[in-house]
Design a protein around this nucleic acid. Structure first.
Length: 419
RNA sequence: GCUGGGGUCGCAUAGCCCGGUCCAGUGCGGCAGGUUGCUAACCUGUUGGGGAGAAAUCCCCUCGGGAGUUCAAAUCUCCCCCCCGGCGCCA
């Protein structure tokens, strides 16, 4: 959520931001107009309330003196009616403004490159060399189908975009989760295991609601939703709290399964486990002072990259241009791992600086020099587990199986897996 | 799930029975200033959100959330949420 103050002071900043994202600037004009009316009503109502409160105070004294309070009571009743009318009007405006404000995206950082689509995302750096015989590697879904991934039974038990991992694939998934968590703890992140179901308030805090409800799974009769990423419960850990300035930055890592309806992804990545309704992920979350957040995004991204470096998987880092930026993010780096069977780099992590956008929604503050300020929040995958498994099966593939990356051998208790 | 207790301005507490000097008191912490020849002590002010104003300042809102009664609600009524203890159930 953006601050109304910012919009009042200079709506053109937000209008430009929306245009850069390729969105309509119309909501800003509407917001300015509603706010103007609201402030007028608020002033009128406050005036009447002040009057009423003042009169109301005289009643008890008049009563003690035994005077006639009837006319005074009548006057306050009249005032009450006027107040109720004005308040109702103001509330309508507040609801309208909140509706808009909660669906307006964050303002991109000045450093974010302008662009019209994902084709305009510049490459920031590259690590590792894709293997020369890339084209001989078969896609994971072809080689793993026999003994490692059961697509049919996944579909039978739950439906399309669900799988059952078997034997060493199941162990590989578990090994990757443990490996990633251990590594990120060494990188200085405190491990937490949050709830996998959260309430609407929490979903609103990080920006999934109200705008993206169709991408979430909702429990039938309870106010509970399945988390689409650990970012949601972990960022909201301190909602409504006031943090110690000296404790910042705070860094957390968390494993959770992630549940996404993938509405609108019809026929996209339908083969294999590239895009599932349920997948595992280790997530990194930071709470920082405002002036720290851009530097902390750099280290957070490096920390996510360290997973791929330890696994010796080639990757590149790109920066999302204004048009591709997520709703809550002011700046995002995507990490893309090399997938031989597709002969290209594919997203495996997304690291974002959400500045004070989520902190405002979730009301996460700290006190400095006696004043309250909003913290900045950051998050990034550290990293997506299923896609890492794909990358290993393809990049380490040789003949009828694949070599286990050195970093995983202690977890896997073997150095090779056969298909 | 049943039952008893509880949720108050950063933290801790008072107030609630008997509605109105409570626009919430006190202690601690934080901030600002002052004082004593020292990183200790003391004194004063301040401490959440919002509106109007150039400013001084003025006003409104806030006692877990919501609805209601009333001229007036932290205080009364109803619903919901959460925390602590007991019983029940359970991986």
């Amino acid at each position: 959520m953006l601050s109304l103050k910012l919009i009042r002071d200079d709506p053109s900043i937000l209008e430009r931001s929306l245009r850069q994202r390729g969105q309509e600037a119309e909501p800003v004009k509407k917001l300015v107009e509603l706010d103007k009316k609201w402030r007028h009503l608020k002033g009128e109502a406050d005036k009447l309330k002040g009057e009423k409160n003042a009169i109301s105070l005289t009643i008890s004294e008049a009563k003690k003196k035994g005077g006639n309070i009837e006319p005074i009571v009548k006057k306050t009743k009249e005032l009450s009616e006027g107040i109720a009318t004005l308040d109702a009007k103001a509330e309508k405006l507040e609801v309208q403004m909140a509706e808009i404000l909660l669906t307006v995206a964050n303002i991109p950082d000045n450093s974010v490159p302008l662009g019209k689509s994902e084709a305009d995302n510049p490459e920031v750096r590259k690590w590792g060399e894709p293997r020369k015989d890339s084209k001989s590697a078969k896609p994971h879904y072809e080689v793993a189908e026999k003994s490692l991934i059961d697509f049919e039974r996944g579909a039978k038990v739950a439906g399309h975009r669900f799988v059952v991992l078997k034997g060493l694939a199941a162990r590989l998934e578990r090994s990757l989760v443990n490996f990633m968590l251990d590594l990120q703890v060494m990188n200085g992140y405190a491990e937490v295991l949050p709830p996998f179901l959260v309430n609407s308030k929490t979903m609103t805090g990080t920006g999934q609601l109200p705008k993206f409800a169709e991408e979430l799974y909702r429990c039938r009769d309870d106010d509970l939703w399945l988390v689409p990423t650990a970012e949601v419960p972990v960022t909201n850990l301190f909602s409504g709290e006031i943090l110690e300035e000296s404790a910042l930055p705070m860094k957390f890592c968390a494993y959770t399964p992630c549940f996404r309806r993938e509405a609108g992804s019809y026929q996209k990545d339908i083969k294999g486990i590239m895009r599932q309704h349920q997948f595992d992920k280790v997530e990194l979350v930071k709470f920082t002072l405002p002036e720290q957040s851009s530097a902390e995004l750099e280290t957070l991204t490096r920390n996510a990259e360290s997973v791929l470096q330890k696994l010796e998987l080639p990757y590149r880092v790109i920066e999302l241009c204004t048009a591709d930026l997520g709703f809550a993010s002011a700046k995002t780096y995507d990490i893309e791992v090399w997938l031989p069977s597709q002969d290209k780099y594919r997203e495996i992590s997304s690291c974002s600086n959400c500045t004070d956008f989520q902190a405002r929604r979730a009301n996460i503050r700290f006190r400095r020099a006696g004043k309250m300020e909003f913290v900045h929040t950051l998050n990034g995958s550290g990293i997506a587990v299923g896609r890492t498994m794909i990358a290993i099966m393809e990049n380490y593939q040789d003949g009828n199986g694949f070599t286990v990356p050195k970093a995983l051998r202690d977890y896997m208790r073997c150095d090779r897996v056969d298909f």
